[in-house]
Nucleic acid binder design. Structure first.
Length: 875
RNA sequence: GGGCCUGUAGCUCAGCUGGUCAGAGCGCCGCGCUUACACCGCGGAGGUCGCCGGUUCGAAACCGGCCGGGCCCACCA
């Protein structure tokens, strides 16, 4: 438990013991070694006695387990882990769980194929069910129907294996998740939370049922919500069709002639001169001979098509609006299977029309269109030939056929789409939420402002969280939808298709006077929108919930702001009257080298585990941490190599800095021992870095923090370390002690600065000379490092050293070449710094003779008239 | 059509609210096994800061327009 690792922010900087630095350092095997150690220590376990003020809670996105993790996941989850580690070191008790999303279409399909089963909610639960096979791929063979409960059990069985692999990857990546706190979106607890939240929405009138036209996917045979729409190009053709008016034909243009029998009006703009004389009159439709009114509505656009539109029930969302606002009749002809309804409608105007219809009945819209067009040709009502066009059609994001609009009974949750005051309240929530980067906020605002209806939460699928609702059946066996039977909260979760409502017996299911289950399941976002409640124990552990909610951070991708982020805000607003979290961190995409979004399409997929094995986890994390939030990043192996180099440099520089003095002699971290000017200047510079890096991390700018630390570190290695190493080697004198203490203090701080990004390398070094874990060590503060010295002393001395090195480099001589005499031209601003570090400069530059300082006015030091004595060739 | 982001050395990117910058790393060229590191070190070359105007004493940075890239909404007659 965490109590073993004190992490007070004010821990003294004076502890140390003996050192055990390996002769050869390496990153090989650090990932598994430290993951094992951290697990054994329960290093990242959440201490639930912490108060809300002490806690930093993260609403981690649950990855879909039936897919596979890709580089983009590694990228964005690293961002979150950097935040988690930083906050933990700052002394916050970090609540960092991991969820698995196993509730959705991808899992449903995978289970079907893997076990050769198909969910049929009407079946009873079979306690001894054994699937026909395991490990199936593809869709071969018949599928055995099983009850929903059996299906869910199979799902849970299969996903356990996926989850194990996912966890192994996350552990190797070094995510500091509390692995005792995982959740599944399909678990009983998740289902119970989803059902309870729904029942509360229902009780407060925020959830309601309505029979209304809505977008419908004919392949999946389910209703689809606005947030799941995708507009895609779809080939179509304009057909110019004649309606028969009293004064001759009225031509309209349509891309959906098969909807002709569903036509309820012709509509033109009220100001359109061409149609003034027709408003208020009627025409008759071709082929089907129905009397159709000609009406005016401002939504009709005079420059589109013929300027007068055929309104059908329903061709598109504009039709729905006209139908509603002009109170038009309903004449549906497309069924839920996407085919023309088999029953011949009664509104058709003649025997001939009925015959025409019967030819269409049962056909797909595509075939029906061909038949209607043929009919129009025959009667001469098609003017000219169809003109091909590219139009946009709405698709379900997972579907491949354009959506139809059909009337159905569905559940909705209010989200401001039809209610201005709720919309304003949700916009205010968005304004209250700290988006990182902040421009992501406008995506939220645009989406909420553009909502045109409430949130459709019911889906006509089988696998998912069922609505906890039954309906009584009247004496005719018809369900009474307005008198739902509901379970109590303590009965949850329930499956209405196998559980029985209070006051009924199982044999009354489906019989007149009995009851029937609501057949639908909830939208996957209806569960996902409750991740804070699921993981925080809202239903079963109010004490925990009060300590973690409202949470601190929601990390996620920008593509699901309109879905996951928004729906979570809606649920929290309705249930708790607050935001679900105070901040959101939005990660960008990973682009492949061609600047395309890295997708799962073959060719540009790199398996994450392969990356981690090849480059090391710290290296991959470094690449991820080098990209700002909200910005797309290139998949760059080069950046990982730089990260690996940095991690190895940390190892080597640390080994060196710890090598001075006897290994069994404690190293002091007391700043009071640091007396030499350049040492004090180095620490002063480090103090600035600590301040700026801390501020950057608090602002969710991990990139800037890393850059600051890294830049300092390389200068520290290349200049400072070179300058002081001779002094540090010496016999203990105040100057030697100063150098050693400064090195130890700087190392101690640098390791902690790098710990969030390079958890393995820093922990490795920490273990050589410190107790406990660097990841529970306090985040460094600037105060103990602050001195009166000017950080510029280090750069001045560095410039002087560079000048001496350059002389040797240009003479093509080794750096250990001695300089017996040299003039150093020093800019006035650097003079004090160079003078104060002169002994170190001489030592590092191997200046054994005279070194004369001359005033100069450049920006760097320049060495001239150097007398070089090359080292004797090696024997 | 509306909105957001973006265009800086061959590559990946820094350049915070206009006045040391034209920068870093990679790559490239040259040199060097220096008692931490050759999974390294040192030195060097490389750019009209997309284009055109404007504001200003001064713009890569601010404003307008254009061009190019990415994304989100709207567009189904």
């Amino acid at each position: 438990m965490s109590s073993e690792s004190p992490h007070t922010p004010d821990a003294p900087l004076t502890t140390t013991g003996t050192r055990q630095v390996p002769d050869r350092v390496s990153l090989d095997g650090v990932e598994t070694r430290w993951d094992d150690a951290w697990t054994a220590q329960d290093l990242y376990a959440f201490d639930r006695t912490a108060t809300r003020e002490q806690v930093y809670s993260i609403d981690t996105p649950p990855p879909t387990v039936s897919g596979s993790l890709h580089v983009g996941h590694v990228f964005s989850y690293t961002h979150t882990d950097v935040v988690a580690r930083f906050q933990r070191m700052r002394g916050r008790e970090v609540f960092y769980p991991m969820g698995w999303d196993d509730n959705g279409l991808p899992t449903e399909r995978r289970v079907q194929n893997y076990y050769g089963v198909r969910c049929d909610p009407s079946l009873p639960y079979d306690t001894d069910f054994t699937p026909p096979f395991e490990g199936g791929e593809g869709k071969s063979g018949p599928q055995v129907p099983v009850s929903r409960k059996n299906f869910v059990e199979l799902c849970e069985r299969l996903t356990v294996e996926d989850e194990r692999l996912f966890e192994a990857l996350w552990r190797r990546l070094g995510l500091s998740v509390d692995w005792s706190r995982t959740y599944q979106t399909v678990s009983a607890e998740s289902r119970a939370v989803a059902q309870q939240a729904f029942l509360r929405n229902l009780a407060r009138g925020e959830a309601y049922q309505a029979e209304a036209p809505g977008l419908w996917d004919v392949t999946f045979q389910t209703a689809v919500a606005q947030a799941e729409l995708e507009a895609r190009d779809y080939p179509g053709a304009f057909h110019r069709v004649a309606f028969h008016g009293a004064d001759g034909p009225v031509y309209i243009e349509t891309t959906r002639p098969e909807l002709l029998p569903a036509c309820v009006a012709l509509i033109a703009h009220p100001d359109d001169e061409r149609y003034q004389h027709l408003f208020g009159t009627t025409v008759r439709s071709p082929l089907f001979d129905v009397e159709i009114p000609v009406l005016a509505h401002t939504l009709a656009e005079p420059d589109k098509g013929a300027g007068i539109a055929m309104c059908c029930t329903f061709g598109d969302l504009t039709d729905v609006q006209w139908w509603r606002e002009l109170q038009l009749p309903t004449r549906s002809v497309v069924g839920r299977d996407g085919r023309i309804l088999r029953e011949t409608p009664e509104w058709l105007g003649s025997e001939e029309a009925r015959a025409r219809y019967e030819e269409l009945a049962g056909k797909t819209t595509f075939s029906a269109r061909e038949a209607v067009v043929a009919g129009l040709r025959e009667t001469g009502d098609l003017d000219g030939e169809p003109v091909n066009t590219q139009r946009k059609a709405n698709f379900y994001e997972k579907g491949d056929k354009p959506l139809e609009i059909v009337t159905s009974r569905q559940w909705y949750i209010r989200n401001g789409g039809r209610d201005e005051s709720l919309r304003d309240a949700l916009l205010a929530r968005g304004a209250e939420l700290g988006f990182n980067p902040d421009f992501m906020k406008v995506r939220y605002e645009n989406w909420v402002s553009g909502l045109n209806g409430d949130w459709l939460v019911s889906r006509q699928r089988f696998f998912g969280v069922p609505f906890p609702v039954w309906y009584p059946l009247d004496q005719d066996g018809e369900p009474l939808h307005d008198k739902p039977l509901l379970p109590t909260e303590d009965q949850l979760p329930i499956d209405p298709s196998s559980d029985v409502p209070e006051g009924y017996t199982a044999d009354q299911r489906g019989v007149p006077g009995g009851f029937v289950a609501d057949p639908d399941i909830m939208d996957t976002w209806a569960t996902s929108s409750l991740t804070p409640q699921i993981v925080g124990g809202w239903r079963t552990d109010p004490d925990l919930f009060s300590r973690v909610f409202p949470m601190d951070l929601r990390p996620q991708g920008q593509d699901i702001i309109r879905t996951w982020l928004f729906s979570t805000v809606v649920r929290s607003h309705l249930e708790h009257g607050s935001l679900p979290w105070s901040s959101a961190a939005i990660s960008g995409w990973i682009l492949d080298p061609d600047r395309k979004k890295m997708s799962k399409s073959k060719g540009n997929v790199v398996t994450p585990i392969g990356l981690l094995e090849e480059h090391g986890s710290d290296a991959v994390r470094y690449w991820a941490a080098s990209a700002r939030l909200g910005t797309d990043a290139a998949f760059e192996i080069g950046q990982m190599k730089i990260g690996r180099r940095l991690a190895i440099k940390v190892l080597n520089a640390s080994k060196f800095a710890l090598s001075f003095g006897a290994a069994d002699e404690p190293l002091s971290l007391d700043p009071a021992l640091v007396t030499s000017e350049i040492d004090r200047a180095m620490l002063a510079g480090l103090a600035d870095v600590v301040d700026k890096a801390t501020a950057a991390l608090l602002a969710y700018d991990h990139t800037r923090a890393l850059e600051l630390s890294e830049t300092f570190f390389w200068t520290f290695c290349d200049d400072y370390l070179e300058l002081v190493k001779d002094r540090a080697y010496g016999d203990p004198s105040p100057e030697t002690v100063s150098a050693r203490a400064a090195l130890a203090i700087a190392l101690d701080v640098l390791l902690r600065l790098f710990a969030p990004v390079l958890p393995f390398a820093t922990e490795e070094v920490w273990s050589w000379w410190r107790e406990g874990s660097v990841h529970r060590a306090p985040w460094p503060t600037a105060e103990p490092l602050r001195t009166s010295a000017d950080p510029a002393v280090v750069s001045a001395a560095g410039s002087a050293l560079a000048a001496l090195r350059k002389v040797k480099s240009e003479a093509k001589l080794p750096l250990r070449t001695e300089i017996t005499a040299v003039e150093l031209v020093v800019p006035a601003t650097m003079r004090p710094g160079v003078e104060s570090a002169l002994d170190d400069i001489r030592a590092a530059g191997r200046v054994t003779g005279t070194l004369t300082l001359v005033d100069g006015d450049g920006e760097t030091c320049v060495a001239r008239d150097a007398v070089l004595v090359p080292p004797a060739p090696k024997a």
